[in-house]
Amino acid sequence: MLNVKDIKKTFRSGELTVSAVNGVSLKVDTGQFVSVIGRSGSGKSTLLSLLGALDKPTSGVIEVDGQDIAKMPDKALINYRCQTIGFVFQNYNLVPNLSAIENVMLPMEFAKVSKTERRNRAASLLDEVGLIKDKQLRRPNRLSGGEQQRVAIARALANKPKLILADEPTGNLDSQTGTMIFDLLHNLAKSQNTTIIVVTHDEVIAGKTDKTFKLADGKLVK
């Protein structure tokens, strides 16, 4: 489903140009659970933001189901982010002023899902990730890190994305909670045939995935 050909991303910071991603090519099949590892600064987050159309590559092709998102106009990109991608971030990134359930409803609002359907689906997703009813109405600052990440996963699943991109989703959690979150993602992927790309530092976690890409200085190493 994903076919990346020789993508590059350079940042200009003053005089210097940094090649965060420097010629990466990879293929991922539908329903695969893939991990990306590498040292800090190797370009993992940058690669993920290119795949999720949060940023445009300096050059190269990113084909998602045969469509090159590198060449999509801005409006189509908004739609792509909304319908095709689900994001999970290291520091949860929930909207602080909204309750857990409202956070999960938010992407569905952007996808123009009706209000009652939003609420029902958000509630069942939160049930699925194991957040009890009482906590669904709380704001993020009254939930633990693990609970917030569950909400973030439910939010990522809201619009039934084809591809979930997770940037160190367990990075801020203790290893036990991290493993639980990881297993949750894994099970969801398998049960719904969703493709998942997860960035991690944890070799154990990486070892459990279908495929592992290793990045160093913006390039894939085998």
Partner: peptide, 16 residues
């Protein structure tokens, strides 16, 4: 800024 980035990432348009 961060919050705006987040809702852009999950599919909000600038207009919204």
């Amino acid at each position: 800024t961060k919050e705006i980035g987040v809702i852009k990432a999950i599919g909000a348009s600038n207009a919204k």
